[in-house]
Design a protein around this nucleic acid. Sequence first.
DNA 1: CCTAATTTGTACGTATGTATT
DNA 2: AAATACATACGTACAAATTAG
Lengths: 251, 251
Amino acid sequence: MAQETQTMLQDGSGPYYKRLAGYLMDEIKEGRYAIGASLPTEKELCDSFGVSRHTTREALRQLENKGLITRRQGSGSTVVATSPPVRYEQNIQTIEDMLHHGKATRLHVLSSKEVEPDANQFASQVTHLGKTPCIWVRSIRYPRNDVRPLALVDVYVAVRTKMQARKLLDEETAAQEIVNTVDVRKIDRIEQAFNAVNVADAEAKLLHVKAGDAAFQIVRHYYDAAGRLLVVAHSLYHGSLFTYASTLRRS
Amino acid sequence: MAQETQTMLQDGSGPYYKRLAGYLMDEIKEGRYAIGASLPTEKELCDSFGVSRHTTREALRQLENKGLITRRQGSGSTVVATSPPVRYEQNIQTIEDMLHHGKATRLHVLSSKEVEPDANQFASQVTHLGKTPCIWVRSIRYPRNDVRPLALVDVYVAVRTKMQARKLLDEETAAQEIVNTVDVRKIDRIEQAFNAVNVADAEAKLLHVKAGDAAFQIVRHYYDAAGRLLVVAHSLYHGSLFTYASTLRRS
DNA sequence: CCTAATTTGTACGTATGTATT
DNA sequence: AAATACATACGTACAAATTAG
């Protein structure tokens, strides 16, 4: 058996660790090891294939990097995917980049106030889980060098401290406090939904467009590492002034 | 000097390789090594910090995994970023998933024909670089269990073989050939742009909506690893039937 | 163009620490 | 408490890619 598997690495080409990694990936793909199952231990692999522990570890590192297994000290290597997921990744340097904020636009806060959980669907989402109060900040985003409104932005924040609430309720400091709340270091996951809508009368006035004009609507939910919903942001972009562009790269 | 740096690793905590990695990350962040500059060689780091090559390599591996450096055999380690970029990644199992195709919708090809480079902006993009002919396939996407059109899809393919052209020009096989062309194994990069538009008369008829209704427009450019533009896809989604949703996870 | 030196990659061995079972 | 399994860390040697001369 050990002899058999030893030869298995002989007829391949390239470094041993890649052959072993390839062999294990094939085994996983063929269903030899189901999701949740444990791979052989490092020692078993060393003995079976007649390679050093260093080589075995390098092979397992490959599988780990490809997202096929996770490894835990004292426990072993567990299969978490049967085929290397094709991953396209979108790199975002800062949350501001993603929001197309940065220095390309400026923000004008219209109003901010605490709202009841049942004020609308977003307020209820923010308050429901944490039972924390919700502050709603409404603002208009303008391009630099342009007086036409780019977007109507409604932000719903789950307030956690008195300090945060005070800053959010002050129209001077609200924008900065929102940025602090969705700080890249705090945000672990963002769920976003895009769609196209015809703007209603009220929003049309604020965006300086005709009612019925197409608008690009983005709703984003920001979660921290503990899975808590920190912020819901609802943006309504001027249809003809705004395009959301991104590049997905294979990783 | 060597003595000095040796002590530097002493006062930290945790494994040596992490201390060394942290030290190097700090140095990079502080601008001690600019982007494009080379880090000290493995040997130099071993000597300076009094650790084994194994430890040094593990530390450098950390920096590589964080995207701060790249390493090339015979050349050295080069700084490519001064701070670990906050990366949010969007995992897509298949191109079909991204296109919301999968088994949730069905496609009906309306027409397919070769078009001149100057037919429109997309045809010109596809033909311009490769000087290859461009085939345009127009189709309607329907949700399963619904007769209302979900989207009008125009695909522009840079044809590379006679076989590909023949399959694309046959309305029976065009859809499958498009899927083959944007096969996950061939696509390295996708550029996508989203925006909202009011639909014109011609498109409105095809989508069974009123002219002026909001539509969600997606233009995607598919590139292979050599940077060649393979396909441009232009989709016009029914505004009220379609939402594009995605989750960005910190990686 | 070829050679030699440099630098990282691969691969072996060994020992001890630490988390899990 | 003991056994197991991965993590960390030391050592050595040679191969392969790059660069300098």
